[in-house]
Design a protein around this nucleic acid. Structure first.
Lengths: 90, 90
DNA sequence: TTGACCCATCAGCCGCTGCTGACATATCCT
DNA sequence: AGGATATGTCAGCAGCGGCTGATGGGTCAA
């Protein structure tokens, strides 16, 4: 229950919500989020750090271009978050 | 999508989350929420006003004791909120 | 190696939000 | 009518959280 509240507080931000929605169709780098959101890289990086601390996303370096930090969703954690929110509204 | 963010922001508060969870098993009055949360009536009333403005709950007067304002969930709206959050994490 | 690029971290500021205290309103009881 | 109970509303305050600017690290190309 407290977990569901924390997840809801994370999603209750448009930037983080769109980040999670963008990650539905595969990994993206920080700069892509920044251009899509109209925000700066450090701001996006802060949001991603929150999501990463919550275990919802992982970060890996791109194999071709090592300067790019690619983020992908932890599908198991996202699915657990979905069920937690769903049971909260049961 | 913006709707899901608004709902998530509402649920991202422990008081409102527990209120919605308590409303799963039937209507309750403001004083019951206040004692369960350890909060004051005006504070709970403020949270209920938010939930009411979002269309998630309705308020009706008790037929026996008209001083009591009973709150119940709008099941259709709650179900819509559940699906909105679920599709956001799809 | 030097520079450019991409990202992370930190301190600081500012706006939003929840809580509180005071007051108003509505209903019931005597 | 008058008091008690239950709830709503409002201004004010304190704390949290997001955005920014600056700085540093890590990677690649020339």
């Amino acid at each position: 229950m407290s977990r569901a509240v924390d997840v809801a507080r994370l999603i209750g931000d448009r930037s983080r919500a769109t980040i999670l929605a963008m990650l539905a169709d595969g990994p993206h780098c920080v700069c892509e989020f920044a251009t899509a959101l109209g925000a700066r890289e450090n701001n996006v990086s802060n949001h991603l750090a929150r999501l990463r601390q919550a275990g919802l996303v992982r970060s890996t370096r791109h194999e071709a271009n090592g300067r790019l930090q690619y983020y992908e969703r932890d599908e198991a954690a996202v699915e657990a978050a979905r069920t937690a929110l769903s049971t909260l509204l049961r």
